[in-house]
């Protein structure tokens, strides 16, 4: 079997701030294979978006600095590649979708023009994207690109796609704009798609359609997806795997059924307990006390220890390393040992 599509190993990232260097990513390990949808969940400021942006090298350095670690995309370390080569990957082999579809489309250009531009840029790297010979005239290429743009819009479920190519972004609803962005991200036939909160700004019914679309894309094209979200519900419905992040660390990761049904890390358990379900009685939801630690001077040892209901003295000694708690299911907590979960959980 070929190597993994993406392998992040021991990634450390600091950001310079007025108060000093904030250690925002603190040893991220993540492996994504083709056909997998990884959910990256956590609360605001846990580093989930920075992990996604790091993969497409969109984190400005400075103020950011990669202390150590590697991000291998099909074996090549993206952190070592010159920016010119990263640019040949970005948008072509690695696609990105962001949260706010409004700010990511140019309001002054028609949807079709924006899609055609992306298609032509992708074709300059891989001519097979456009279904026309490599020595075709610019006019023919443009026509092929427009055909492709129409097909892509149709594929992401925009009714009457051909005619809507001539619309401007403001004539589309939020859900449709997000579909345009997905179409745009898929035009270059990426192998890895990073979707950063793609449905947060959308209604649930539209969200369900977009998530279904992402799932279908993985099945049809055998690509890998990293879905960044704060909604465990979205993860449970869409992802094959999940990594839970807290203050720059992945505290728990594994197949989605495992993690959702048997959360091992106290933080994952607390997150699950905070979601209102059908069974929750009024006034009995469990919130999580305290707040996210300051990353300039993070608490010693496990960063979750100050808020953890199970914390003991040893928790502040060293950062816990991930232990296997089930099939491919890891949790970074010293109170969780082997396949046995601490008895008083």
């Amino acid at each position: 079997m070929a190597g993994p599509l993406l392998r992040i190993r021991d990634l450390h990232l600091t950001m310079t701030s007025f108060d000093g260097a904030a250690h925002v990513l603190n040893g991220i390990d993540l492996t994504v294979q083709r056909g997998e949808i990884w959910g990256l969940v956590g609360e605001s400021g846990c580093g989930k978006s920075l992990t996604g942006l790091s993969i497409s090298r969109l984190v400005p350095t400075p103020p950011a600095r990669y202390i150590r670690g590697e991000i291998r995309f099909e074996g090549r370390d993206l952190l070592q590649l010159p920016m010119r080569e990263v640019q040949t990957l970005r948008g072509k082999r690695i696609g990105m979708i962001f949260q706010d579809p409004t700010t990511n489309l140019n309001p002054a250009y028609r949807i079709g023009e924006q899609l055609v531009d992306v298609a032509l840029a992708a074709a300059s790297h891989d001519a097979s994207v456009l279904d026309c010979p490599a020595d075709a005239s610019r006019r023919e290429k443009r026509r092929a690109a427009r055909r492709l743009a129409g097909d892509m819009l149709d594929r992401v479920g925009i009714p009457n796609a051909k005619a809507r190519l001539d619309n401007y972004p403001h004539e589309f609803s939020g859900g449709m704009r997000q579909r345009v962005l997905i179409a745009m991200a898929l035009i270059g036939r990426p192998d890895l798609l990073i979707a950063d909160e793609p449905t947060t700004a959308l209604d649930v019914s539209v969200q369900a359609q977009i998530l279904k679309l992402l799932k279908g894309t993985v099945a049809d094209h055998d690509i890998g997806i990293i879905l960044i979200t704060h909604n465990l519900g979205v993860v449970a419905e869409t992802c094959s795997h999940v990594a839970v992040m807290y203050a720059g660390n992945i505290v728990e990761s594994g197949p989605v059924e495992e993690v959702i049904e048997r959360p091992a890390h106290p933080y994952t358990q607390a997150l699950m307990a905070a979601i209102p379900t059908k069974q929750s009685k009024r006034g009995t939801l469990k919130g999580l006390g305290g707040s996210v630690p300051n990353l300039v001077s993070p608490p010693p040892g496990c960063r979750f220890a100050p808020r953890c209901p199970l914390a003991v003295a040893e928790c502040t000694q060293a950062l816990p390393s991930a232990v296997e708690v089930g099939t491919a299911h890891h949790a970074a907590c010293i109170r969780v040992t082997g396949t046995e979960v601490a008895s008083d959980v």
């Binding site: 649930v204 369900a208 449970a236």
Partner: peptide, 23 residues
């Protein structure tokens, strides 16, 4: 409404609601 939605719209909304459990 949540157990027995009458309108098609309510059924669609409730069906689209992502729940943090394994389906």
């Amino acid at each position: 409404i949540f157990d027995a939605p009458k309108s098609a719209y309510a059924r669609m909304l409730i069906g689209a609601m992502p729940e943090a459990r394994v389906r």
